[in-house]
């Protein structure tokens, strides 16, 4: 069915591994249907076309260079709806780990002696895109789940508000019938982390590192107490949040 009124969507990517775009691309069973409903006009990882007449922009990655600030702002001006795609974009994600160290040190750790040679390696503290522009919807996770990406896209096409969980991973764990990580002698931050991942890490024997960010109203004090009770020091307890929660915890402070 040819429909000239199809909404136009675009994908953009900033500082990230582009794994979340790959998740979107790997919705193979649904892509034919999706493509019958929307026109994709900009998607570097998938198509050559690059147009600027999009209505919905999915932005992946955090902002970590001055020029990216301008680019993100431009996208905001053009798009009616901006969706943050994945942890880097929605909470700052792993990239914010570097914010806690001096720039020179970070560069040296990664690039060794060559670090000084390249000017383009100078970056600003990594930040989620909502530190730069207003964001309408968030698709959390590292990486995003395909089902949630499709849910958000379908909801937007139907004019419905997407249902993004505002409850902790404990819920997903219970629904999955998992034994609690704490009972198995480990600790995790799932108690204050936004669910929606089906507790996949815990189901497969790992812990939750909080890639989907905090729930809206987490009881962090309760969690610090719990972690201490399970043998972690206060700083050890808090550092559990650092892998993904660097921006929420430190912001730009430690630059």
């Amino acid at each position: 069915m040819k429909n000239k009124q199809k909404p136009k969507i675009a994908f953009f990517s900033f500082t990230c591994c582009e794994g979340c775009q790959l998740q979107a691309l790997s919705c193979e069973d649904e892509l034919p249907d999706v493509l019958s409903l929307v026109d994709i006009v900009n998607f570097r990882e998938a198509i050559d076309e690059k147009r600027d007449d999009y209505e919905i922009a999915f932005i992946e990655g955090s902002v970590s260079r001055t020029q990216e600030i301008e680019e993100v702002k431009k996208i905001r001006e053009k798009a009616k709806i901006v969706v943050a795609l994945g942890a880097c974009s929605s909470t700052g994600g792993l990239n914010c780990l570097k914010n806690r160290f001096p720039m020179e040190e970070v560069k040296k750790i990664v690039y060794g002696d060559k670090a000084k040679k390249y000017k383009h390696l100078d970056t600003i503290p990594a930040r989620p895109i909502d530190a730069v522009i207003p964001v309408d919807y968030y698709i959390h996770g590292c990486p995003i789940t395909k089902s949630e990406f499709l849910h958000v896209l379908k909801s937007l096409l139907l004019g419905k508000k997407p249902e993004i969980p505002n409850y902790p991973v404990c819920v997903d764990c219970k629904l999955a019938g998992n034994i609690c990580v704490f009972e198995k002698g480990m600790t995790c931050v799932g108690t204050v982390t936004r669910a929606g991942c089906s507790a996949i890490c815990i189901t497969y024997g790992c812990i939750c590192w909080g890639c989907r960010g905090l729930i809206d109203n987490p009881n962090i004090e309760a969690h610090e107490e719990t972690l201490k009770r399970y043998g972690l020091t206060a700083e050890g307890a808090l550092s559990k949040f650092d892998l993904y929660g660097g921006w929420e915890r430190h912001g730009e402070k430690k630059q």
Partner: peptide, 27 residues
């Protein structure tokens, strides 16, 4: 309290549920 709902989920007499619609990609 965390407000994590674990007490509800493990409870043998809690029976509240949410009803949601999920539509396929063909809408």
């Amino acid at each position: 309290c965390y407000g994590c709902g674990s007490c509800n989920h493990v409870c043998p007499t809690c029976y509240c549920f949410d009803v949601r619609d999920e539509i396929k990609a063909n809408l």
